[in-house]
Design a protein around this nucleic acid. Structure first.
Length: 496
RNA sequence: GUCCCCAUCGUCUAGCCUGGUCUAGGACACCGCCCUUUCACGGCGGCGACAGGGGUUCAAAUCCCCUUGGGGACGCCA
């Protein structure tokens, strides 16, 4: 059996950043190609020169890189050269192909020159709107004779595809057969008067010439697929398999708008999410595993299990809560070293002087937070007190632990615990706190939480004994004394 | 307006193709309880859905039709 090589592509138009929806399409294509030992191709649809900007190209590729989606063939990007035998991989550099193929269609009578002006076409459209007809081209230039065409001389013209009679069926892997009456399509333009190819021609020529075997894309292209099938047939290219998946919706159920936060996949990096999480989550946004109930996947695992058969037909909303949960799961899967490496730049950015500290100590600090933080960014609030003494004490915490009658006793007891600890570690501190709490009949929670407030200024954070051990005896005791002074001042103030 | 797609808990979904095993399973969220120094994690339990109406059938979440709702496409954008 000589099976044709699987070749998939993502063909974004670099008019902005990497959209979450584009990422989904890319991921599915990438996973399918990888799972089938096929090739994944990146092609830039930058024919609309006005909307293309190099910085957009970079931003988009950056998004792919962050996610870990790599391509076997594609254009030059940064220090990566163009690669692949089907180049160039930018539509703007492929116009000669489009011209050649358009010319061929013209020769074969499958396309024709249209001399209608923009004004004429606009008028037709308005007319149609008035008469409540679908806005379709009337076919005015469809049957011009060679003489009539010659008589036009130098008049600029566009090239229209001559849509054949009959029915077009898109055999979609996800949707099943989708039938279109060709009457629904008008003779669409494939080449503009300035000679530039229109999207429909460009994609089909590119997909045909690049021998793309599977076109996996958003179902906003489903209607276009009919045009593309006709074009594939007219050009004599073998038909690829189509798979139109539903679009990503926002939490309100609408198409995920470009202007919404999170539309840019790099927004999530900014917010402290792992690329592993995004990959996992986006995969779940339209695909389910054969292994029922399983939702946690690494990129590597996904590669092995992905199948087009398990793609979902209905659109999915983006659910931030579930993303948070998944991110927590992925954070816990990291080794402490990996977590430290990812979190240290964030801490540095928030002016925590990580560089003045021992690597070993940092590793431990990060480790005691691993089970607690839902996003990488939360590390700041969970560790900042290690680097600076609390400037204020949490208000609610103050009321609960510093303004009670026993507050001074609690704090003094805690101080004694610390002083009596012969070894400054988690075990010893824990034992000491438990012993003193029992001896003085104080609830351990009161002791612990008062200490936490004194040491960190907060009511939440890493485990107390772990944190105290890492803070060091001198610093811990200094902060305890400071808190004691604070309490005494407070009560003094209220008494006078 | 025309065409196309979709429709199971609040959300993501399993089941649908190959009707009966579904008093519809899981996950997130939510609510209890347990564990626990807080938060989180984890454990246990609860709440919660086959959009509506017609068929077909002994039997329908599963097949067919209609309605409704949602989405998409109708460019000299991609």
């Amino acid at each position: 059996m000589t099976e044709k090589k699987i070749r998939c592509r993502i063909a974004p138009s670099p008019s902005g950043f990497l959209h979450i929806g584009t990422a989904k399409t890319a991921l599915y294509n990438w996973l399918f190609a990888r799972s089938q030992d096929g090739a994944f191709i990146l092609r830039l649809e930058d024919t609309d020169a006005e909307r293309t900007d190099e910085q957009y190209v970079d931003a988009m590729c950056e998004g792919f890189r962050w996610l870990g989606i790599d391509w076997d063939e594609g254009p030059k990007f940064g220090d990566e050269p163009q690669k692949g035998a089907y180049g160039p991989y930018r539509q703007s550099e492929r116009s000669h192909f489009y011209q050649r193929e358009a010319e061929r269609l013209l020769q074969e009578g499958k396309a024709y020159k249209c001399f209608c002006t923009r004004e004429e076409i606009d008028a037709m459209r308005e007319q149609a709107a008035r008469e409540k007809r679908p806005p379709r081209y009337t076919g005015k230039c469809r049957n011009l004779t060679p003489d009539e065409i010659a008589a036009k001389g130098e008049t600029p013209y566009s090239i229209r595809f001559r849509v054949p009679e009959g029915e077009t069926v898109v055999e979609d892997v996800i949707q099943g057969p989708v039938r279109f009456n060709n009457k629904e399509y008008d003779d669409f333009i494939i080449v503009k008067p300035n000679g530039a190819a229109i999207f429909h021609l460009a994609v089909v020529v590119d997909d045909g010439l690049m021998e793309i075997s599977h076109i996996i894309r958003g179902d906003d292209h489903l209607t276009n697929a009919g045009r593309h099938v006709m074009l594939f047939n007219a050009l004599g290219y073998p038909l690829p398999k189509f798979a139109h998946h539903p679009l990503v919706h926002d939490e309100q159920g609408r198409k995920y708008s470009k202007r919404l936060h999170g539309a840019n996949v790099l927004d999530w990096r900014e917010d402290g999410y792992l690329p592993e999480t995004l990959i996992n989550y986006i995969a779940l946004l339209g695909w389910t595993s054969e292994e029922e109930g399983r939702e946690f996947f690494s990129l590597e695992e996904l590669k092995g299990m992905f199948t087009l058969k398990r793609l979902t037909k209905s659109p999915a909303r983006f659910d931030r809560k579930k993303l948070d949960w998944l991110n927590g799961q992925h954070i816990r899967m990291l080794s402490p070293e990996q977590l430290r490496d990812r979190v240290v730049p964030i801490m540095r950015k928030h002016n925590l002087d990580v560089d003045a500290r021992q690597q070993e100590w940092l590793l431990e600090v990060v480790s005691i937070c691993q089970e607690k933080i839902p996003t990488l960014n939360h590390i700041v609030g969970y560790t900042d007190f290690f680097f600076e003494r609390p400037a204020t004490y949490d208000e609610k915490g103050t009321r609960k632990f510093f303004e009670k009658e026993e507050s001074v006793l609690w704090l003094q007891t805690a101080i004694e615990c610390m002083q009596q600890a012969d070894v400054w570690d988690h075990q010893t501190l824990k034992a000491q706190y438990e012993a003193d709490a029992a001896a003085k009949e104080i609830k351990i929670g009161a002791l612990v939480n008062t200490t936490r407030l004194a040491l960190t200024g907060k009511t939440v954070g890493p485990g107390l004994y772990e944190l105290t051990a890492l803070l060091g005896r001198d610093e811990a005791l200094a902060r305890m004394e400071r808190a004691l002074t604070f309490i005494q001042q407070q009560s003094g103030d209220t008494q006078t």
